[in-house]
């Protein structure tokens, strides 16, 4: 009986400690949850970006700039990605169908079935990163927070065939938008996208209908 009386408080203490530990959570989880609270409400998104791509094939990093537009949710997603420099080119993706263009938006190149599958996969990944859908991110990536002082998340894809071996998402201080994305290739190359002029849930500019 005495043993039982001593054992009960010990169990209660252990339970209280476990509950506290669970509430404290992983910092990456907290950040993910906070960012998701804002990200889930994205209906339209416009942003300008500068891109810096490091490739083993090139002596110097390749710099380009452009903008992207995102609208719709629930199956009717429309993504427009446009490079303005050094060469005008881009793609439009709408309701599962994509098309590439080069120099002139009317100069559309038909997308083969294989390219279509790749484009769909890429847009899906892009939307997942932009919208911060926690469950999906967790399913597809190993999520960590590299620097607790900076609101950023490091995602490592669980699938071996992913486009990048690592994605670093850096949030704006407000956590409402993504400030930059850095993708690292399996072979060491990488791309950094820095976003400016981010307009969330506002009317998309005419640029978005190239």
């Amino acid at each position: 009986m005495t043993r039982r009386l001593l054992f009960a408080p010990a169990c209660a203490l252990i339970c209280l400690w476990a509950a506290g530990a669970a509430r404290a959570g992983d910092p990456a989880d907290d950040l993910l949850r906070n960012a998701a609270a804002h990200g889930m409400s994205v209906h339209t998104l416009f942003a300008r970006f500068t891109q810096e791509k490091t490739l083993q094939m090139l002596v110097a990093p390749l710099r380009s700039s452009g903008y992207f537009c995102l609208s719709g949710k629930g199956g009717g997603d429309r993504v427009v990605w446009v490079y303005e420099t050094p060469v005008r080119s881009g793609f439009t993706y709408e309701s599962g169908k994509g098309s590439f263009w080069s120099k002139d938006p009317t100069n559309i190149r038909p997308v083969s079935a294989q390219e279509g599958a790749a484009l769909s996969a890429m847009v899906r990944s892009l939307l997942t990163w932009v919208r911060i859908e926690p469950q999906r991110l967790r399913e597809e990536h190993v999520v960590s927070m590299p620097d607790p002082a900076v609101p950023s998340l490091c995602l490592r894809p669980r699938k071996p065939n992913s486009f990048f071996s690592e994605v670093l998402i850096r949030f704006a201080p407000s956590l409402r938008t993504v400030e930059s994305l850095r993708f690292t290739d399996a072979d060491g190359g990488g791309v950094t996208l820095s976003f400016t002029d981010v307009r969330l849930n506002s009317l998309l500019p005419a640029l978005c209908d190239p």
Partner: peptide
């Protein structure tokens, strides 16, 4: 044609 990331063909929708 399989989705390059997921490994299976995915419909357009």
């Amino acid at each position: 044609f399989p989705d390059p990331v997921l490994g299976y063909p995915i419909s357009r929708d």
